[in-house]
Design a protein around this nucleic acid. Structure first.
Lengths: 352, 352
DNA sequence: TTGAAAGCGGTACCAA
DNA sequence: TTGGTACCGCTTTCAA
């Protein structure tokens, strides 16, 4: 029998012969209620199929137990992995994820402003296409915001959790130089993203520090198709690179495929390719991609930690967390003579 | 200035010098309000940064404009693609997605029962690990439920949208037979899933219809690692198959990688491999996987359509939609002599 | 067209 | 420990 009118606490109260407040108390963890009454109420609730209405509850408690999560491009496997981990972690402490997908291009701000009307208890912004202004706006309205895998340009007090993009990219540069490469290229991610800015800066600065010329830079937009075009630009040119650092794995896989199948190059014999993120496909034998690993589990845990802390104390100082990663060495780039170590089952590079 | 107390319609009313109900009307699409008042209210709302509280609204309208979406394993690229499309489609008509990730193993029912307390307007269940009992329970509580990429065992009246798993698998069998294969294997998905049941049944029945022996069946659990083990079982055996149908792409990629890199086999010269779903990586040159394409866009549109229809009329008859797909032919399986056609830029197989 | 008032389904305070 | 009651922020009659 499909019941049209949902069962309310009032219905349960009537059936159990108690007041509605008593019913409420029976469903409130540390509230006072006599065992016998609690039993009667629970029996009534069970028989009616009563489920407390969380919407009504949050109206008064001013806590929805919902965290908004804004994501962009789910084709890059990094994000599904993040989303799954984040959702699991939040569910484990009694929160649900209200998902918000932002188009890769264009202004997603007006649409995400909507999410605030749902009274989310917090917000995780993991899309580069969301402006920093939006983040500031959310903070102004009192909603804790954590930027994930991105930072704001000026340190405007928005909390963030990210990997060490600059150090990672610098390590990749050092690794390639140690491997004897001299003609380097960088396939860039989204121009306006903080991750791309930091990775590019770290890579270029490290190359300069090693006395090398700046890398050739081609746009990849963190996009698979665009990265294929970038590969064509690089490999069909008169002076092809001997190593390519791609700003993320998603593009690196495209570049590797193009190198091998469109340009007849051997990897790493003819060209070394390195990615960033260390997503699952990087370890697949077809790719065996050397990549800088972002510590997804730790980043997610840190994000949840920041959220929880701020929920408990809205005036806690905002922190910008940068979590260290590791260069996971596989077969897509020529190996340097030294510095390779095995740690926790992964082969990583640790110079000196 | 971070405002602790959120702005309410009452605040706006006071500032604009009108009643609170008037403010409400100004934010209700087809409500009556004099242009001049509307202007005053909008100005006041703007200056205060007022955002109608959707939680409060849904308490009275009994519509949350939230759709719950339950997903399992996001490592299989099929699901991120579905989630993105679903979220976009729902956002476009003013709904948000409340995400629910179910562990691949174990009983996720108790945790998802929670989602009902959020008063979702509808539910999309796209995880095999959710019981049909749960679906029935949701329906009983009056929440429209659509099963996505799965069906219930008995036709118990739960709506569903799926690809034509049986016909697709049968077509794959016919394709392999036409390609001259005789020693077939099937890498199975989750044992208790409807998709696996249908694909296995379709494959086996078609083989039998062609007078072939039943395929060798090994368990893959829709999991990448398990599929690698399945490949080892198949290729290291005394009588390796000359063609393997994997119940989804995610496993097919693992099997292909194992075939090539662990067992020294050439694809498709030594063994043909076919998948199901036609996810993005299938078209990557490294794999060039022949796969039965599930029409994700159409499936998502149909799902949203069912939801909307049922929201409008809860008593509409429940429908089980099965959407046709196509066998997208690439390079991972030997080609039959005839039946290959190009359609909308895809090479597909259409026997007679 | 506008405002007053009655809820929506709960929580939380109060006095009993 | 219990029940009564005043809200939470909004929508929706109903009169004016």
């Amino acid at each position: 029998m499909s019941q049209r009118r949902p069962v309310t606490a009032q219905d349960v109260a009537r059936l159990a012969g108690v007041s509605q407040s008593a019913v409420s108390r029976c469903f409130t963890p540390g509230a006072s209620a006599a065992p016998q009454m609690r039993e009667r109420v629970e029996a009534a609730a069970r028989s009616l199929g009563y489920r407390p209405n969380l919407i009504a509850r949050s109206l008064i408690t001013r806590r929805s137990r919902i965290i908004g999560v804004a994501l962009g491009y789910l084709h890059n496997q990094f994000y599904p992995a993040v989303l799954e981990a984040l959702s699991e972690a939040l569910q484990a402490i009694g929160y649900q994820v209200l998902l918000f997908t932002a188009p890769q291009e264009g202004d997603a701000d007006p649409r995400i402003a909507d999410i605030l009307r749902y009274q989310v208890d917090g917000l995780v912004l993991a899309s580069a296409s969301l402006s920093s202004r939006l983040a500031a706006e959310c903070r102004a309205s009192g909603v804790p915001v954590v930027l994930f895998n991105r930072t704001t340009a000026g340190d405007d007090g928005t909390e963030s959790v990210s990997g060490d993009n600059e150090a990672g990219a610098a390590m990749i540069a050092a690794f390639l130089v140690a491997g004897g490469h001299r003609r380097l290229a960088y396939v860039a991610g989204l121009e306006n993203s903080s991750t791309n800015r930091d990775r590019q800066r770290g890579f270029c600065a490290a190359l300069a520090a090693h006395g090398l010329a700046p890398p050739r830079i081609v746009a990849g937009g963190y996009d698979h198709t665009q990265a294929q075009r970038a590969a064509a630009l690089l490999f069909a040119s008169g002076d092809p690179p001997d190593a390519v650092f791609c700003a993320n794995d998603h593009m690196a896989l495209a570049v590797m495929d193009a190198a091998r199948h469109s340009h007849g190059l051997r990897v790493p014999d003819d060209v070394s390719i390195i990615g960033f993120d260390d997503t699952a496909p990087a370890s697949w034998p077809s790719f065996s991609l050397t990549s800088f690993s972002q510590p997804v589990a730790e980043m997610v845990a840190a994000t949840v930690g920041l959220l929880v802390a701020r929920l408990a104390d809205p005036d806690a100082p905002a922190r910008q967390l940068v979590l260290p990663g590791a260069l996971v060495v596989r077969g897509s780039a020529r190996l340097p003579a030294r510095g390779l170590v095995t740690e926790a089952g992964r082969r990583i590079w640790r110079p000196q």
